[in-house]
């Protein structure tokens, strides 16, 4: 019996490994071309694994030496990502709590509206959002990016966390109320700690989304020192089909490193958090 199990496991392992190789092909492509001169990408026939002598770090050197500002861009992306993430975490968890525990007229309709707004593409909303941002005087500031990002991620996060909260038994709330607690005390003292896995899960996802966002960032940010990483990467794309892809791939790889690190570190929260959240849906 045990032998059978381990054979099955072995087969699964091989299947998964093959699949994983397909998943990684473009990544290999990316790393491969980032380690070669810019003109290599135009070669025919294309080669994934060039000879050893071809490999060079010149693209990375160029990027890291030429722009000392790259650390500023990383910092900007980090700030925007973190603040947006925290804002959404706070607001969506509070919202989820209220939606889960309290009845009021139009609750379900309100919830549906929140979800429905996810259907309208962000691209379309740029103009109205820009006008609001101008009026609030947050154009060309990092604080112009954050509210829109937060608002954008709010529906999905609320949805996920609400499902999670629905699964927390009401008896816990009841017990606290009997003891004379107020709603705020129940929320902060009991529910919020229990929500931590769910919050962690959506937070990681939200951070990643902010890290990569380009459209709104490009519209709001004009100053060079306020650029986020996606804007910086876009600056390497040339017109007339002439882009130095060596640099593009190198900087893209560099910008993936923090994300991957965060993901690996937090991925166990990811799993536990999503768990009960999506079961209820």
């Amino acid at each position: 019996m045990r032998k059978r199990k381990s054979i099955v496991e072995f087969i699964l392992f091989i299947i998964l490994l093959t699949g994983a190789m397909f998943m990684m092909i473009p990544m290999v492509y990316l790393i491969s071309y980032s380690l070669r001169p810019n003109s290599d990408i135009y070669q025919y026939p294309p080669t994934l694994f060039p000879g050893y002598y071809k490999l060079t770090f010149e693209n990375y050197e160029y990027i890291l030496s030429k722009s000392v500002n790259i650390f500023i861009y990383f910092k900007n992306s980090l700030i925007v990502g973190l603040v947006s993430m925290v804002l959404v975490a706070l607001m969506s968890s509070a919202l989820a709590f209220v939606l889960s525990r309290y009845k009021f007229k139009g609750k379900e309709i309100f919830f549906l509206i929140i979800i429905a707004t996810m259907i309208i593409p962000g691209l379309e909303l740029i103009i109205p959002q820009y006008q609001i941002a101008v009026r609030l005087k947050i154009i060309n500031r990092l604080s112009g990016l954050i509210p829109v990002y937060a608002a954008w991620m709010l529906p999905f996060s609320t949805f996920m966390i609400r499902g999670f909260v629905d699964n927390i038994p009401r008896e816990m709330d009841e017990a606290a109320y009997v003891d004379g607690a107020s709603p705020l005390k129940v929320y902060f003292g009991i529910i919020l700690p229990l929500m931590k896995p769910a919050i962690a899960a959506v937070s990681i996802f939200n951070f990643l989304t902010c890290w990569e966002e380009y459209g709104w960032a490009q519209t709001v940010i004009s100053s060079e020192k306020l650029r986020t990483i996606p804007i910086y990467i876009a600056g390497f794309f040339g017109r007339n089909n002439f882009t130095q892809y060596g640099y593009v791939f190198a900087i893209s790889f560099l910008s993936l490193v923090p994300i991957i690190t965060i993901f690996i570190t937090f991925q166990k929260y990811f799993i536990t958090g999503l768990m009960t959240g999506s079961v209820k849906g």
Binding site: L87, L90, M91, S92, A94, L95, F97, V98, Y102, I113, I114, T117, I120, E124, L125, I127, P128, Q129, Q131, I132, P147, V148, A150, A151, W152, L154, P155, T158, S182, P183, L184, Y187
Partner: peptide
């Protein structure tokens, strides 16, 4: 009353945020 006030406190920031930066633009659109 105190309860309502507290619940509203939890509820309002998200709603205001959402209305200002998402709902209002959608209505405008």
């Amino acid at each position: 009353k105190k309860e309502y006030w507290q619940v509203t406190l939890l509820f309002l920031p998200g709603v205001i945020f959402f209305s200002l930066f998402t709902l209002y633009p959608i209505v405008k659109l």
